[in-house]
């Protein structure tokens, strides 16, 4: 839509700026809080400008953590979260692209049944099946391990479905041309389908990385050993101190640090991500 109406321009900008302000203000406040000392926010009058304790707060959280809350240093939780989010994102993409390939390009008995069974799992999110899943993971001895954190979350109907829809838009002739050119199923997958799915994979990676990063309930259940705490559940633990006021400045420093990796992923993959959402390469 290319229009040249100044009033409309101003109006749209006002709406956008107000929207951004509403979203950004709490983040700003969190950042301000993370730069003051522990008492600044307890006084009831929140400061609006950065304070002098930024480096102290962040250094303390990164290196030693908040031992009174039973939480490990933030760097460990960041690494745990990164491992978890990466494993989930990569695992989900790998499994779903392969299963979508099978469903779209191979004629095997019960193909449709397989597809619908995958599809039906969409209706059972982690929270619904959390008790049986926990039981299984516990019986397999995977509590307090990266495997226990990630494997139950890897199977993905959504991603399978997205890849299936994408594969269906690829003309059959491409597969036939590849067959005539002497490419077997694996070669076709590697040489043609994977490169064509590049933008889709990137878009999904961003979405799934964030999905893995923000997991809260599942890590809370399967980890009792602080070495496996993830950052999102760790923040909750930081804020929940029994007798005293929470150290809001330190909690907010952890929050700011927790935000960085997803933001980084989005910034780095933004170009591909947007391309994947709006464009089909044909």
């Amino acid at each position: 839509m290319v229009e040249n109406r100044p009033v409309l321009n101003i109006l749209t900008h006002v709406v956008l700026i107000v929207g951004v302000a509403i979203v950004a203000f709490p983040v700003y406040l969190a950042f301000i809080a993370s730069t003051h000392d522990a008492n600044a926010f307890a006084r009831g009058l929140a400061p609006m400008l950065p304070g002098p304790h930024m480096i102290d707060n962040y250094a303390q959280m990164l290196t030693s953590g908040l031992s009174s809350a039973g939480a490990p240093p933030v760097w460990l939780m960041l690494i745990n979260s990164t491992i978890m989010a990466l494993t989930i994102a990569i695992g989900k993409i790998a499994i779903s692209i392969i299963s979508a390939y099978a469903i779209v390009y191979f004629r095997f008995p019960f193909r449709l049944l397989a597809f619908w069974m995958i599809f039906i799992t969409l209706m059972l999110p982690v929270e619904v099946r959390i008790m049986p899943t926990f039981k299984v993971v516990a019986d397999l001895g995977m509590l307090n391990s990266y495997a226990g954190l990630t494997i139950p979350l890897i199977a993905s109907a959504t991603a399978t479905f997205l890849f299936r829809q994408f594969f269906l838009t690829i003309p059959d002739e491409l597969m036939e041309a590849a067959r005539v050119d002497g490419a077997g199923p694996l070669k076709f997958f590697r040489d043609i389908l994977l490169p064509l799915s590049r933008t889709n994979i990137a878009a999904l990676f961003v979405i799934l990385f964030i999905y893995g990063w923000v997991q809260y309930l599942w890590p809370l259940l399967v980890t009792t050993d602080s070495r496996y705490y993830t950052i999102v559940m760790g923040i909750k633990r930081l804020a929940a101190s029994a007798d005293a006021d929470p150290y809001w400045n330190l909690v907010m420093a952890a929050v700011m640090l927790a935000m960085l990796p997803p933001v980084l992923v989005i910034i780095l993959m933004q170009r591909l991500f947007v391309k994947g959402l709006v464009e089909t390469e044909k």
Partner: peptide, 17 residues
Amino acid sequence: AERDIAMVFQNYALYPH
């Protein structure tokens, strides 16, 4: 691939990438 033929398709079927 074993038939030693080459085919030209209606929509060309070139590998886009």
